[in-house]
Design a binder for these strands. Sequence first.
DNA 1: TTGAAAGCGATACCAT
DNA 2: ATGGTATCGCTTTCAA
Lengths: 328, 328
Amino acid sequence: MPTSADVARLAGVSRATVSYVLNNTTAVRISEPTRRRVREAAEELGYVPHAAARSLRAGHSRMVLMPTPHIPAGPLYSHFLNELQWALRRLDYTVVQHGSVGMSGDEAARAWAELRPVAVLAPGAGTLGPRGVNVLKRSGAKAVLTLGPERVEGAHALLMDQREVGHCAGAHLLSGGRRSIGVIMPAEAGFETFSAPRLEGVRAAAEGTGARVVPLGLAYDEQDAAELAARWPDLGLDAVFAYNDEYAMLLMRALQDAGTGIPGDTAVMGADDLLIGRLLRPRLSTVHLEMPSGQLLAEFVDRVVRDPGGAPEVHHLLGSTAVPRDST
Amino acid sequence: MPTSADVARLAGVSRATVSYVLNNTTAVRISEPTRRRVREAAEELGYVPHAAARSLRAGHSRMVLMPTPHIPAGPLYSHFLNELQWALRRLDYTVVQHGSVGMSGDEAARAWAELRPVAVLAPGAGTLGPRGVNVLKRSGAKAVLTLGPERVEGAHALLMDQREVGHCAGAHLLSGGRRSIGVIMPAEAGFETFSAPRLEGVRAAAEGTGARVVPLGLAYDEQDAAELAARWPDLGLDAVFAYNDEYAMLLMRALQDAGTGIPGDTAVMGADDLLIGRLLRPRLSTVHLEMPSGQLLAEFVDRVVRDPGGAPEVHHLLGSTAVPRDST
DNA sequence: TTGAAAGCGATACCAT
DNA sequence: ATGGTATCGCTTTCAA
């Protein structure tokens, strides 16, 4: 692997000159012929600078580290992430996702800190805690932000408040005259961070109306859904908020197969406004989530990196709107 | 940010000793009291080693770089990736995903090479070409592997042969007596790498049977599906392989709404064997994909890293099986 | 058992 | 306009 010294030797100049040329340093003037010789030498050797060496010398990097979320990202979130990465690269950051499955919060923060990222954009509050934030800041991270349902002490928060989603759904169901609302809680690990606040939101909407709110565990498979559907009549519910469109589809099918009328006997509401909801019969009512613009977020990150002094900011990013269709 | 020198000062020892203690170097014996002092000092200062400095000195890293695929990963692939990352970490690698949207192949390879990863696991053949492989190898990557439908000169190939998927679907449809097979080609960018070989597979299955194979563009939205369904009778098809279960769901709904009987008039087949397919009526026939074990793959990566000399290997990883249900 | 020092690759200051 | 060189944080011989 060729180094800048190799390039220098081949071009017959010093390593300093190589650095000046390849980085287009403006503070120093290099003659055109020299520039050409250096460029050609670099090209010929297939020289690629060593990021670690560079950032060691510079004392900082342009790496934005994004820990991979623990639950698989849906299409909505994937799209948002893509946009964000693209926008960050345009601002000349190197975006890197770090898989941290099976690490405790502090372990994870340490692992991230070892890479000395200039910014960390952590999903949810799953892994990162106040101690982790501290470790990261002390390791030189200029911006530590969380992106998810909760805020974390010391970090900027880009709140995607899941309670709003639940509130939206709850309010819609109540406005349709429903009085007993089931709320699906996915049994799969890692969903609590989202499902708990959604449940809370439904509860908040029901507050004072005298309506009943009942959490219901459900695994994402046919059999569990069938079992739930079998005891549905006993539950005495006239509505259900199914966590999201996929669980809604699962439950709706099971309920229909068990003879429960939708929306007659029970109203079903999803969330995320996926295309599949529109393909169901009856068409699935849902909560549409307005994801934040990746562009805007990237600019926020950049602002914090450039001026790290400020107090942690809290931004609310998620817009929720009920989309009534035929299942409610 | 504290350095090992700070720890040394606080513990009243040399930097060398700090390194020995924190890395549990066995070649050298440090007294227990000293170890304790060093550990306590490191703890107190919140010392986190600097990965860049370490790998600069060592001349190599333990970073496995995985460029993010250009199309959003489905649940199948996400799960597989998680497993792989987990297995790699158990082998003491640091797994990092690098988003490379909007970079040309060679640009991307350079960006990856700057990080001096010990291994690169590139999806598909989307970005990486033979030149890129070369750049990576010369930058010190011990293992360069591609994970997807095509192989790339110079790199090990973990082939997930999409033609098999198409072949499976085609063979199943033909065995049911179908003679005119439509094949859905997603209109969204980035899907060609998967849809083209799947189409090829259907063609191969039809080879010599006299059956007709017709590619059909389809965007993932209701309107486009409705338009396709409207001209369906004119197409004279008695079967369709819908690329995957999601497109199948979309198309099936549109066909049913337009009055086409399934499977009477047209057999519909998906792929991926997602749960949603089982929830449809009629239940969707599909192609089940057996994803490779992340554990096995991690071991392969590790083997190549330890013994980089060997010739590029080609492994076929995808097992496809037709799952007949009610839509065919 | 511990410390001094060389060196990994790149950069930026200070000379020339 | 260009070159010499100290420096970033860490590991690892070699000496003591």
